[in-house]
Nucleic acid binder design. Structure first.
Lengths: 127, 127, 127, 127
DNA sequence: GTGGTCTAGACCACG
DNA sequence: GTGGTCTAGACCACC
């Protein structure tokens, strides 16, 4: 997996897991890959995965059975949509809106990008 | 002025100047506040303002007359809309789209936020 | 049974057995549930129960007849009150006191919580 | 500084800072020692101090001025007494009460320990 | 096997 | 100078 430069890797790992949960890769109750496993598959330090899991754990998206591993909470999707959504709307949206205004970015451009993205997701799912 | 925590202060200062230019606070040819002036009014380190001015200078949004100060370029608005817009679309938009999908944020929500923002800008202008 | 996250499960199992002895669920001389039985009823690994029994065995609260099982010692209650009490006072009390001071927790609050707890125990016994 | 074995060092460092704030060593608005400074004075790894500061930051007990350091929030004492107190009462108190009951620890014993502790604090302050 | 913690050491962006 | 992040490697308790 490749990581963007402008965001901390641990945050990108957390987003990676969130994506997996939303897209159904890991369902409610499923065991997530162990720290070491995920670390080696993503080619990062275990410590970095721990940090990502920590964040999701503190948001109650995943739970922890000692000596066994991390598991997707039953209401994980709701937790994600509540917590992360609120975060996005409060912290990021105002800046996005300002940028759209300053740089003359139209709603249509956003809409089209979103549609293209959804199509790509659909195709990925089919595969 | 208060700064958001998740973005470097110098970048926020640069955006502050860009906003001023787009909103007509500083017109083409106008002299911008001196580094010390802006630094003291924004309560930041002069070094930070220098860095912000440097960025705008490198994007040819502002010019520099030695010993006198920084001035808004004639084609500043175009430069901003070209350079910063491209930046926004290439770097930020993909992440925004992904977040919108994962967190169930609709186009309507963006649209409404944008409308409200524009109204606020209008009222600020009237004052 | 649900376990608290901040304490090892084997320790909580040991406390569970201690509680049973103090509250009279298992009297002196009684046979305790077998390792497998307790493990399945508490939904934990048998290994974990073994560890809990080991601790109580080492404190001479329970005894072991090979091939038959574990039994509550005649002086189990005294052993518990001696050994575990000392442990509590030496290891935990200092931290509790410090927390009470730092977080402004009054003696009255402790007293009231204790009274409520005792009432609940009484009602449980009646049932 | 010596650390107890049964609690993570980073948690003890966090408590150390909380103590300092409650006891007036660092007042509201004061700058806390830098990560490296505190790490070297407590003889721990800087990473460990970062973790402690992170916790206090997430509880809004301390704030962070970039490139400058961490500062005690104006309402730090209130935040501590709210957040940490609640934590103590919800998570620790039930276990304490249960232990008191099982091991025959009286309210008087707690009260006396608290009085002695307060006297010690007073004497430390005088020095 | 699992996660949790700590250390040592490094590099980076920021002010 | 400040904090933020990442790696490598180790040890531990727990299940």
């Amino acid at each position: 997996m490749e990581f963007r430069e402008n965001e901390a890797i641990y945050a990108q790992v957390a987003t990676f897991v969130i994506e997996g949960i939303i897209l159904g890769k890991w369902a409610a109750g499923d065991k997530l890959p162990s720290v070491r496993e995920l670390a080696s598959s993503l080619q990062v330090n275990p410590h970095t995965v721990v940090r990502a899991y920590d964040i999701l754990y503190s948001r109650e998206v995943i739970s922890n059975k000692r000596g066994i591993g991390f598991f997707v909470q039953e209401d994980a999707k709701e937790k994600i949509k509540l917590y992360s959504r609120e975060d996005f709307i409060k912290r990021e949206l105002p800046e996005i809106i300002k940028s759209m205004y300053l740089f003359d970015v139209s709603i249509k451009e956003i809409e089209e990008a979103l549609i293209i993205y959804k199509q790509e997701i659909q195709q990925t799912k089919k595969i």
